[in-house]
């Protein structure tokens, strides 16, 4: 299955971007093969408002069933919940570590937004 993780870099060793809507990029990882693709989130990152919605659309379009990020804002939370994407917040330093924790089942699922809008 495919999962999405926010990042400031271009690969699995890159840091997790703590922001979701304004994250620089999304990495879509296939958990079966560890193959990944990078999705640019420049439009969301530069949006004055509604960044989380645009990023959520990108996650859904990529076919991911779960999202890992540092924090999740209220609009993104509503959008992802409606599309059935599960959300996890983490303080893992790298994408690789975040994915490892996801596979090990040690991430806790977010049940609500944990930051104000405009994060």
């Amino acid at each position: 299955m495919k999962i999405a993780c926010t990042t400031t870099g271009n690969g699995l060793q890159s840091p997790v971007d703590p922001r979701f809507g304004r994250a620089q990029r999304l990495i879509i990882v296939d958990t079966d093969t560890d193959a990944f693709t990078v999705v640019d989130n420049a439009a969301g990152a530069a949006a004055a408002q509604g960044a989380g919605i645009q990023a959520a659309e990108a996650v859904v379009r990529a076919g991911a069933v779960a999202l890992i990020s540092g924090h999740i804002g209220p609009k993104a939370f509503r959008a992802l919940r409606a599309s059935g994407v599960k959300m996890y917040t983490t303080d893992a330093p790298t994408v690789e570590e975040a994915v490892k924790r996801f596979k090990a089942g040690s991430l806790t699922e977010a049940k609500s937004a944990d930051v104000n809008g405009h994060w």
Binding site: Q49, Q54, A56, E57, V60, R78, A82
Partner: peptide, 17 residues
């Protein structure tokens, strides 16, 4: 304005946008 969208479900409204 990204004020309304469906995410595979019924459309969600983000009225502040």
């Amino acid at each position: 304005y990204h004020a309304i969208a469906s995410f595979g479900s019924q459309a969600l409204v983000f009225s502040e946008l």
